[in-house]
Amino acid sequence: MFIVLYACLIQAPATCREEYINFSMEVSAPLACMTSSQVTLAQWSQSHPQWRIGRWKCVPADRLSHDI
């Protein structure tokens, strides 16, 4: 399972990027990923203070290339 997040620079909101975080979670548990990933997102946000997370989703690894 991957967390795909879309983040934009705080000082330049038009500058955005997608990030992919490998998240250890069973493929059959997308709801668990959505709730458990909050800690991972907070850690990413803390280590990237110049970026603001706009949206995010959980994507199984086998569907990653189709969801981008």
Rank of each mutant, 00 (worst) to 15 (best):
L64N: 00
L31Y: 07
F23A: 07
C8H: 02
S45R: 09
L9N: 03
A7L: 04
E26F: 05
M1D: 11
L31W: 03
F23Y: 15
C8L: 05
T35M: 12
Q38R: 15
V39W: 04
S37R: 06
K57D: 10
E18D: 06
A12I: 01
A61Q: 13
S37Q: 11
A14V: 09
A12Q: 11
L64G: 04
N22L: 02
P49G: 11
I68M: 14
S24K: 13
I53A: 11
E18T: 03
E19C: 03
A32Q: 07
I10N: 11
A42W: 05
L41E: 07
Y20V: 03
A29Q: 11
V4A: 12
R17G: 09
A61W: 09
V4G: 06
P30I: 04
V4L: 15
K57I: 03
S28D: 14
C58G: 04
R55W: 14
A42F: 08
D62E: 12
S36L: 06
Q11Y: 13
L9A: 08
P30V: 02
V59F: 01
D67C: 02
C16I: 07
A12F: 11
R55M: 06
W51R: 07
G54S: 12
A29M: 07
Q46V: 05
W51D: 05
C8F: 06
S28T: 13
Q50C: 00
P13C: 01
Q43P: 00
R63V: 02
S28F: 03
W56M: 00
L64H: 06
A61N: 05
W44D: 00
W56P: 04
S24V: 08
D67V: 08
T35Q: 14
S36H: 09
